[in-house]
Nucleic acid binder design. Structure first.
Lengths: 218, 218
DNA sequence: ATCAATTTTTAGACTAATCTAAATTTTAAT
DNA sequence: ATTAAAATTTAGATTAGTCTAAAAATTGAT
């Protein structure tokens, strides 16, 4: 069993490894964890002693098999709880993160396997992110950012990259939700803003929006 | 917001105050918390600085209004989660305690109010203990121990005093459950063991059993 | 009322997780 | 190849919560 803090570091390293596959730097991890680089160095040493990460001074960290499995298990719990909060307890998708951050650290195998069953073994969380199964396997989504689509193309909204309250509330306000079809009508080459068609209406969105919305491809 | 450890101390003091209404001693609290008296003294000083308890050296502690309200809120959360685990996630009544001990510390008002609603505002937990409402009010049960009944009397089982796994599994094995009617057929004055009628059958139980089962009176 | 037993508190130390400030190493520009 | 800037690590301190061992206060039996 690992501490709450250790689990949070593992999760952060897991997420950062997608952007930094050769190793996550101390500063990147410090930023992600809202802490100081020196604190990160301390923790990374402890994680290394516990065989959760591979670490060599000045060279960043990578998760070990054990570290990755642990991180995936925490992510599984986080996303299952998010589904529970939205489907059963009437939470909006921008309200779940903070509570799921707490619930993800509850230790009980039975709790999670029964929760999974109770929810009908969901494959995606409310933001469209895949939920790992009990063995840690998760579906890799065929998705690209809306900003990568060309004029004339269209697709279905399947996820968000940024899941901040502000962004999610912007989406709610403009009736952009997972499952909706979006077509690109125009693209402004100067600032990459787009005119899209959604719900039968036209909507102008900035590149900050289009570069945080995932669209199904395959 | 209080720490996990502080909340656990408040809960322990709350429970011990029933047996020691004039003040909970350091040693009693140390035993309840499975810790050392010196650790208790330290913690009690911190709780006192935070106005959660009234404490004078060598005289034990009592909860303040704030301390009692906090303890009751934690107990409310614990018991609601127990109901959730049993009713929704197929936990047996002897399996819920450990997990509820973790879940009771999750901080989110909305989570608890929605969970309460989702469960249909239950008044009792799976062991028959009353669940405080959002304002901290809880039903005081009219109940006595089975051991206090006389030969010829009968009543309905409404709760357990001991909720250890061992005791609960003993009850399961003998088909003793909340809501069942029990009649006293004989009482052995030597060891206080009883012959009871339950489910149309006769059963011999020791005083250890009868002094841990609550029976409805009113 | 004394004094031994018990209870409680204090003193000092430890661990996990964090911090600031200083030192060291790496990097990248010239 | 130097060297200044940036990144990283080390050193030393801090806090919450715990511990052991010793000191102090209370209790209770005579």
């Amino acid at each position: 069993m690992f501490s709450l803090s250790e689990e949070n570091y593992l999760k952060a390293i897991f997420h950062l490894e997608r952007s930094f596959p050769t190793g996550v730097s101390t500063n990147a991890l410090a930023e992600e964890m809202n802490t100081k680089a020196s604190s990160v160095t301390d923790m990374v040493k402890r994680l290394s002693e516990k065989k959760l990460v591979n670490y060599k001074k000045y060279q960043g960290v990578k998760l070990s098999k054990l570290g990755r499995d642990t991180a995936v298990e925490v992510i599984r719990k986080h996303r299952l709880w998010e589904v529970f909060l939205v489907e059963k307890l009437n939470f909006a998708w921008d309200e779940v993160h903070e509570v799921a951050e707490q619930l993800e650290h509850i230790k009980s195998e039975k709790l999670i396997s029964e929760l999974d069953k109770f929810l009908g073994f969901p494959k995606k969380d409310p933001h469209g992110d895949p939920i790992p199964d009990a063995k840690g396997n998760m579906v890799i989504a065929n998705k690209i950012l809306l900003s990568e689509l060309q004029v004339g193309e269209s697709g279905i909204c399947v996820g968000v990259k940024d899941s901040s309250t502000e962004f999610l509330q912007y989406l709610d306000k403009n009736d952009i939700a997972l499952g909706k079809t979006i077509s690109i009508l125009e693209k402004e080459s100067f600032d990459q803003s787009m005119l899209i068609k959604l719900n039968g209406k036209e909507l102008k969105i900035s590149s900050l929006i289009s570069s945080n919305l995932y669209i199904k491809t395959s």
